[in-house]
């Protein structure tokens, strides 16, 4: 899932200071699971903004809604009337959701309430870790299902590097993922696979090749 966290409250308050009626729009997918932009967080942020503004001369009216997914037109169609009522939309989704909302409602100012962090998962309550580097060409079958692209600080494809010390990374306080790959391959009896040198990766399939677009004509329904 996409992992995001709420922006500092002060930043959101500043971005909304010029508006009197706002729609806080949550998303029921990834950001609900990572406790950043679901129905509950919409309620808490709405109450916080209202309470802040109630103390001044310019009280804030908040509309609250949480859609199934902000990254699909059909769910945004459902909030058309609500969006019309509001002066601006505070999107509590990832960067994808914010952009879909802005595109669907071109005459509305859209404010992002979250910072989108990574593609990963929750390893335990309150801890989310990056797992996928979205490189466009998966190599997990070569590394025992542990990704060096997303989890090695240097994205090394033939690791570990000289900075791997006692299973820890030299760049930051994380496990050396090549140490993990080595241990996993040993446990699976596939150490010989690591003897093969991985050639340079074609990064043009990753974000380095520019914005990516996936087209599947086999699932397209003609109008």
């Amino acid at each position: 899932m996409i992992i995001a966290e709420q922006k500092p409250f002060e930043e959101i308050a500043k971005m909304t200071a010029n508006f009197d009626k706002v729609l806080l729009l949550g998303c029921n997918e990834c950001v609900t699971v990572c406790l950043a932009g679901g129905e509950k967080e919409v309620g808490v942020l709405a109450a916080s903004l209202r309470m802040l503004r109630k103390q001044g001369d310019r009280p804030l009216i908040t509309l609250e809604e949480t859609v199934t997914r902000q990254c699909e037109w059909e769910y945004l169609d459902q909030i058309e009337k609500l969006a019309e009522e509001a002066e601006c939309i505070i999107s509590m989704a990832c960067g994808v959701g914010v952009q879909f909302v802005a595109e669907r409602f071109p005459d509305k100012w859209v404010i992002p309430a979250l910072n989108t962090k990574s593609a990963g998962g929750s390893v335990k309550h309150g801890i989310w870790e990056e797992r996928c580097g979205l490189c466009g060409e998966c190599i997990l079958y070569k590394t025992g299902g542990v990704c060096p692209v997303a989890r090695c600080s240097k994205r090394i494809l033939n690791g570990p590097c000289g900075g791997s010390q006692n299973g820890k990374c030299e760049v930051k306080d994380v496990d050396c993922i090549w140490d993990q790959i080595y241990k996993r391959m040993a446990a699976l009896g596939r150490m010989d696979w690591l003897m093969e040198i991985e050639p340079e990766k074609d990064w043009s399939k990753a974000r380095d090749g520019g914005p990516r677009k996936l087209i599947r004509e086999d699932v397209m329904i003609s109008e």
Partner: peptide
Amino acid sequence: PSQLNCEAEPAAGQ
């Protein structure tokens, strides 16, 4: 209102 922490940034949100 001056005691509040929600002063608008210049041009933000216009």
